[in-house]
Amino acid sequence: MMKLTRVQDHAIQALMAGIVGAEAFDHVFAGIRFDEIEGTMLYAFARNEDVASDIEDSYSPLIAAVASRVLNKQVDVVVVMPKVLQ
């Protein structure tokens, strides 16, 4: 298991913002934290359960591609959990 650095977390966020646009990013991704990678699974925390589910359902493949690029490591699965379970 590898904990992401703050720079890696922010790099993924910045690239996602550039792809989905500022308005969508602020609405959906506000407060997200990309936390750690285990094997090919990336774990992230979102502000609540509904947002976590929306991000996982709608953006997982895109996040996986961006994270793979930033981390220089294959990411196949993105698991987004609400911060409450952190």
Rank of each mutant, 00 (worst) to 15 (best):
I32H: 03
E36D: 15
Y43D: 08
Y43L: 00
G39I: 07
A14L: 02
G39L: 12
M1C: 14
A46V: 12
R33V: 13
F29D: 10
E56N: 07
T5E: 15
D35P: 05
L62Y: 06
L62V: 13
S60L: 08
L15N: 14
L62K: 02
A11S: 10
A24N: 13
A64V: 07
V75S: 04
S58V: 05
R69P: 10
T40V: 12
F29S: 03
D50C: 07
P82Y: 01
A30L: 04
S68P: 02
M16T: 12
Y43G: 01
K3S: 12
F34Q: 09
M1P: 13
Q74R: 15
V79S: 13
S60I: 06
D26K: 05
V66K: 01
G31E: 13
A46E: 01
L71V: 08
V84P: 13
V28W: 10
V28S: 11
S68I: 06
I19D: 10
M2E: 14
A67C: 00
D26E: 15
V66P: 05
V70C: 03
D76C: 10
E56H: 00
S53M: 11
A30P: 06
L85M: 14
I19C: 15
M16H: 04
M41P: 08
V66E: 00
V20T: 04
D9P: 06
I12Y: 00
F34R: 04
D26N: 15
D9Y: 06
N72Y: 11
K83G: 09
I19P: 04
H10M: 10
R69S: 10
V66F: 03
G39A: 07
Q86G: 06
I32R: 01
E38R: 14
D54E: 09
D9Q: 05
A65N: 01
F34N: 14
V7G: 13
G18N: 15
R69W: 11
S68H: 04
V7L: 11
K3V: 15
K83L: 07
R6V: 10
L71S: 13
V78R: 04
V77M: 01
V66Y: 02
T5M: 05
A44D: 02
Q86I: 11
A52T: 10
V70N: 02
E38F: 06
E38Y: 11
E23H: 09
V79P: 00
V20M: 05
D76V: 01
T5Q: 01
L62S: 13
P61V: 03
S60Y: 05
I32W: 01
A67D: 08
D9F: 01
I63V: 03
V7R: 10
F25H: 15
I12M: 00
V28N: 12
V84G: 10
L4T: 11
V75C: 02
D76T: 09
V80K: 04
E56T: 07
G39S: 08
G31M: 06
V78S: 03
A11T: 14
K3D: 08
I32M: 03
P82C: 08
A17R: 10
V7T: 12
N72L: 07
D50V: 13
A17Y: 09
L71H: 04
V51R: 07
E56S: 10
D26M: 01
A46K: 00
D57T: 09
Q74V: 12
A24C: 12
A14H: 05
V78P: 08
P61W: 05
P82F: 05
A64L: 00
L71K: 09
E56A: 02
A44Y: 00
R47L: 02
A67G: 02
N48F: 09
